[in-house]
Amino acid sequence: MFIINCPFCGEREQSEFKAGGEAHIIRPKQPTELSDDQWAEYLFMRKNIKGIQFERWNHAHGCRKWFNVVRDTSNDEIKAVYKMGEKPPVQ
């Protein structure tokens, strides 16, 4: 079970959080202008990386804020956490 450093509350047990899938997928501003394929790309296509992955987490049983996490999926090491709208601190 991870310990996640919520950018608003500090370190907490993973059981307080909810995972929210891949980060930095921006909802298209003009969906009506997209082809089926382009919309499907936004809607369905997600990476499943062994290694460094950018993902969204929600402190569901805490401050309820969403934020981003950089996690190495091969060993679950969390490299960084940062707020929504911020640039990822590592590549």
């Binding site: 909810k18 929210g20 921006i26 909802r27 969204r56 929600n58 569901a60 309820r64 804020k65 969403w66 929504m84 709208g85």
Partner: peptide, 13 residues
């Protein structure tokens, strides 16, 4: 509730 908060915080802040 979770879904509404998600959109408010991430897509439409």
């Amino acid at each position: 509730m979770g879904k509404l908060e998600d959109y408010l915080q991430t897509e439409w802040p």
